[in-house]
Design a protein around this nucleic acid. Structure first.
Lengths: 248, 248
DNA sequence: GATGTAGACAAGTATAATACAAGTGCGTGA
DNA sequence: TCACGCACTTGTATTATACTTGTCTACATC
């Protein structure tokens, strides 16, 4: 039986990748081609095979590295998943579904401390595939200069023109509503990650409230705990309080 | 595998920062560049990486210093669910469902780097109500002294007799499997939070892999991002009353 | 047609070396 | 005491070199 060289190489690399950690850099294509004594084209075909399997990714001028599962969000900076997508060479697209100034629902009014708010609902896509339904509320006096096009082209937190300090984020699981399911192209009631984020400015005032809905099969959060308290139990988890108001 | 200099330097500095206190001043960029024998540009890229992670900040003309009210403190200091329960005077109950030495499935073998593992599956309850299905794998040579009763009475990490350092935790949503649904007393395919935690010892080797499945309606994560203001939701203890409804 | 080799070029990244602007801390000298 | 200058710091350029992936062409082999 004839063996096909680039498939051999692909399975050898598959084995190495299995043992390596996330984001580990592979040797360069020319190193690999001299190691396996084949041309660069053959190496590339092997690597493209692995890319197709989702095992590796590459950036021009940088190299090939081990992929980290589905879309992973690092909790740890104000940066959003959109920045992380751009860093990985995926061009995020924002499609604005709703853009309106309105009276704040009670929960929003309570958090932001104002009655008049701008509410923006967006669908975020990565390489054309929807991966998040995002609803953002911000006080009307901060949002009155924003246009629909603004929020389509830039992440929200760069548009406000004020310095932000931090955020508190809650992460929960839920079943997809009919609306969200249609937008995300998943079945109704399939599992989703539902996150709420309250962003504050340097004075500690809440200036943004946002809700993100991610389809479960495409996203997960990842938290590095360099010197965590020893435990196998996930930290930061709490039980939901029944009196917390329902839907924002 | 290739390595990139500024990433190496970043992780070396991460380690130093972990050991240093708050607001400690780092050596100047030129000191660091002569210490690591690289150019200032490379040092800056490493530092910018750490800034993005919220570990350090800088002021022009002053220097780089370890960030103030940092994320790590919060993430590291967050209480686990079990602590929360104990603080409330509720005695958490652990029911061991399975306890067996076996061959590691591929994923587990890859993470722990060994074929023979101890697998323990537990159901955690609070006041008789199940709130988590936990599966823990650890290398057989570390677990061979443990008995079934040990893991029923004490948290896993106290039993190993080795010093642990940190962890990486991923958080995702999923639909409940038939098994998990039965154990958690929810419907099949209802949403659950599925968390995986890889715990490492002081040498950085992975020694525990654990998977936790929580029913979505009773649990959510709260994460304080860098410099977050003391905000609406306390990240400490917040417990459930009996009749729970989905929040958010 | 699928597979492979060899090579060339464009575009992006990593790193070094250097220069200069601008902010900070501190001592000196009037 | 206070203003000034000096040493040192980060912030921001520019230039240059080596290396990496992305893409293309031409050609050989089975």
């Amino acid at each position: 039986m004839r063996t096909i060289r680039y498939q051999q190489i692909a399975s050898e690399l598959r084995e190495r990748i299995r043992l390596a950690g996330r984001n580990v850099l592979l040797p360069s294509e020319s190193d690999l081609s001299s190691e396996f004594d084949v041309s660069r084209v053959t190496i590339r075909r092997a690597l493209e095979t692995l890319r197709h399997e989702g095992l590796v990714e590459s950036r021009q001028g940088f190299g090939w590295y081990v992929a980290g599962g589905p879309l992973q969000q690092h909790l740890g900076g104000l940066a959003t998943i959109e920045d992380q997508l751009e860093q990985r060479g995926i061009k995020p697209e924002r499609r604005v579904l709703e853009f309106a100034f309105q009276n704040a629902p009670p929960r929003v009014a309570a958090v932001l401390g104002t009655e008049q708010v701008l509410r923006v609902k967006r669908l975020n896509l990565a390489d054309g595939d929807p991966f998040a339904v995002v609803t953002v509320w911000c006080p009307a006096e901060l949002g009155h200069r924003l246009s629909r096009r603004d929020v389509e082209q830039q992440p929200f937190y760069t548009l406000l023109g004020i310095e932000l300090r931090g955020a508190t984020q809650t992460i929960g699981a839920d079943a997809a509503s009919a609306d969200d399911a249609a937008l995300l192209q998943v079945s109704v009631a399939s599992p989703v990650l539902r996150c709420e984020r309250v962003t504050t400015d340097t004075t500690g005032r809440a200036v943004l409230l946002s809700e993100h809905v991610f389809p479960a099969h495409r996203t997960e959060f990842i938290v590095e705990l360099p010197n965590a308290a020893p435990s196998t139990t996930p930290s930061g988890l709490r039980l939901v309080d029944e009196r917390v108001t329902p839907a924002i």
